[in-house]
Design a protein around this nucleic acid. Structure first.
Lengths: 345, 345
DNA sequence: CTGAAAGCGCTAACAA
DNA sequence: TTGTTAGCGCTTTCAG
């Protein structure tokens, strides 16, 4: 109650009748402290409810034990799980995480990175908009540890933790083919993005590898939004030329397909089977539950966090961070999750 | 490329041939600097790509411009939107936010608060597990600005930003009554929590106020989980005594009800109308779309953030924070969102 | 309008 | 085993 003032290491030292150095030593678990002294100091610390000032400490050791997480939008169903993975792993090493949503706006990305740099975060986990290599270049020249998440900016030396979108899409389509479907349509993601492009490539490759006919009118361009899926499905309905199966580039679009089908009284999976990608939590809650390729979202976050902290440790040890110190990209596997939307009995 | 070393205010001062004081002045937009000097310094800063060290600054001004956000789980569909609100508002005032998930574990709450206190966050937005008043008491004695979010720990002096759960539930049930339903069941939330209790109270009050029969077997205890909703619905089905309408204490449980009904071939809304609470994003994506009471999640986050920053400013100005400085609770309105699950044509 | 000097709370040689 | 002394990079009196 009494004072509002923060109590400092000096206060503790005085109360114990020792020097601040000694207190600092017990605070940091250094050897070379008499057991009696140590326990006395510990006792006073405990009684005073003292917490060392992290900023003062950071200032001298030149390390803040915080990392920045920069993503498009924490509200996007993909990211909360990733964020949780980042956080859990960070906590393991006593790091805190500062997060920021950018809405893929270049300007915002710039701002928040600047802010974090001023706060002297030890490193950054970023999911940046494409063609933003300038920012990364600046980071490189400052030797800031960075790992990219989910997306990879071509041209950057920083490692990425992500999935193999092409391979994953390939496997999705391969599954559909193995189930016996031949006329398989694809609703693409935003083709301005690498995942959008790669997933389409995977679709094409799977069709060709399996000697099916690659019909361009079976590929409809979307943009990862639910509306795009809805529109694409209606387009197919109008054309009166329904496929046997649809692979939507993500779950959100698949939900749009679902809605359009419901309105047109097309039954899924009886009349048409449907598959998404990502396994966002919703996909198991809709009816029929969506078959999809599950991204290991939590693990992506965890691994990115782990890699970043490793990088930070290397930098601390060597006193700098060179290109050779950076790790290779880490590609995690997606997993097929079979649910009712492809289940014909 | 050259050095990895961070450039400091001293470097800038030397390059300009002025003192660090002067550089500091232009950095902080102080008056009393010759225009020529100012622009020269600005130029050098720009050229050197210099960013002042926030920690050093914080150490002397005793303010970090970061706030902590402590929630049960960023993965819970309720929180990402709240978090985004907190962040957007914080950003407006150039604050960063450090977040942590606690899974409602007392021990974790303790840990992360300690960590944030060491980092000297300027204030905290918390959504703590019940009966955790000890933590808040400690915070009070340290004069840390805190605002509670979504939940309010009884006994704490800290203000909360939340909704009126009882009133909201009341309005939900009132809507059902106005639609002409008389036999209305309620699946409760976790009754160990205040929102769980309050929503049940609201249900009871609405039934009684409108001269309907309050049947205890129409109230089934749940815990906010989808499974609980599923189980509750099946229990009603087994009893063979279906209500005309169900008010589930949250959307997740309503989803469970939906699934049970599908399996039992009970049609919604034709055979039974259903209503949830919260308006999590999923509720508009399932079929039939869920009627619900929408929590202003984004706004809750924003308002909490705003209130906290106001508190911080008061503390800075006065040099301390007293009980009288704290604001009153802020209660935001929920809003009825009508969708197909209650729409009979 | 500008600078010298002290100090924020801590750690890290270097002595003792 | 302990203490003295310098800083870390910045802001802020207080003099000029």
């Amino acid at each position: 109650m009494a004072a509002g003032e923060n109590i400092t290491i000096k206060d503790i030292a005085e109360k114990c009748g020792v020097s601040v150095t000694t207190v600092s030593r017990v605070l940091n678990d250094k050897p070379d402290v008499n057991d009696e002294t140590r326990s006395k100091v510990l006792k006073v610390i405990e009684e005073s409810n003292y917490r060392p000032n992290g900023m003062a400490r950071s200032l001298v050791i030149n390390q803040t034990y915080s990392i920045g997480l920069i993503i498009p939008d924490i509200n996007n169903p993909y990211f909360p799980e990733v964020a949780r993975g980042v956080e859990d792993q960070a906590q393991n090493s006593s790091y805190s995480v500062i997060f920021s949503s950018t809405d893929n706006k270049l300007e915002r990305e710039q701002e928040v990175i600047d802010l974090m740099l001023q706060k002297r975060v030890d490193g950054l986990i970023v999911s940046l908009s494409l063609a933003n290599k300038d920012i990364l270049k600046r980071l490189e020249s400052k030797k800031i540890p960075v790992v990219q998440l989910d997306r990879r900016i071509p041209d950057s030396i920083y490692p990425a933790v992500m999935i193999d979108n092409q391979r994953s899409a390939y496997n999705a389509v391969k599954f559909l083919i193995d189930e016996g479907y031949k006329r398989i349509a694809h609703i693409t993601g935003n083709l301005q993005t690498v995942p959008g492009q790669d997933r389409e490539d995977g679709y094409r490759k799977a069709i060709l590898d399996n000697d099916l006919r690659l019909a361009e009118d079976m590929i409809i361009e979307g943009d990862f939004s639910k509306q795009a899926g809805y529109d694409a499905m209606n387009q197919m309905i109008e054309r009166g030329n329904l496929p046997e199966a649809i692979f939507a580039a993500n779950d959100m679009m698949a939900l749009g397909v679902l809605e359009a089908c419901r309105q047109a009284e097309i039954r899924i999976p009886e009349d048409l089977v449907l598959m998404g990608h990502d396994n966002i939590s919703i996909s198991n809650l809709v009816y029929p539950a969506l078959t999809t390729m599950a991204q290991p979202k939590y693990k992506l976050g965890r691994e990115a966090s782990k890699m970043l902290i490793d990088l930070i440790n290397i930098k601390q040890k060597k006193g700098s961070l060179e290109k050779e110190d950076l790790f290779a990209d880490q590609i995690l596997e997606t997993k097929l999750v079979k649910r009712s939307s492809t289940a014909r009995f």
